[in-house]
Simulated assay, not measured.
Amino acid sequence: MQKITRKNPSNMPPPVGNYTHITRIPKNAELFVTSGQIGVDQEGNIPPTINDQVSNTFSNIKAFLKSEGLDATNIIKVNIWATERIDWDFFYTQWGQLFTTDYPSMTIGYITELGLPEIKIEIELWAAKLEA
């Protein structure tokens, strides 16, 4: 049976966070690509703090996964964009509720602004679902 595999090659430095250097997706997998998920709540409000936005963003990610019959093991790549420093202790608390040790590949970038001035963080996901 084919499966998504993740590895950190021994000839590379170890990851500096909770991610994997390489994620391999077998052929014939169905790919899902999200728009960047932001910290908006169900009523359309964007809270003023980055931690509240992180919390809402992870809620939105979980809703995406549920809507497509996926879970965290299907996530193959995460791109994170933030306009201010991320509180990593808080972020990894949220991250740890989604991922255990089977981490996806990840990129993080700090930028000057996102689509709206009140948005402080945006997380884009790539996921793969294997044919049964």
Rank of each mutant, 00 (worst) to 15 (best):
T73L: 06
V40C: 06
N60H: 04
L65P: 11
I22E: 12
D71L: 05
D71I: 12
E122F: 01
I111G: 08
P117Y: 03
E113V: 09
L31R: 03
A72C: 00
I50W: 05
R6Q: 03
N28H: 09
I4C: 04
A63H: 04
P47W: 11
K27W: 13
G44Y: 05
G17I: 09
D41Y: 07
T101V: 08
K77L: 14
S59I: 11
G17W: 15
G36P: 00
T57S: 04
A63Y: 07
E131R: 11
E84G: 02
I22P: 11
T93H: 10
Y19F: 15
I75M: 00
S105L: 08
K66D: 08
S67I: 09
L116T: 08
T83R: 03
S59K: 15
S10G: 07
E124H: 05
I121H: 01
K66Q: 14
S105D: 14
D89V: 09
Y110S: 12
R85Q: 15
K66S: 13
L116N: 05
A128T: 01
R85P: 09
S67Y: 00
D52I: 08
S59G: 10
K7P: 11
K66Y: 02
E68N: 14
L98N: 06
I38P: 01
P26V: 15
Y92K: 02
N18A: 14
N11H: 15
W88S: 10
Y19Q: 07
N74F: 02
N8C: 01
F64K: 02
Q2P: 15
D41A: 05
T23L: 03
K3L: 14
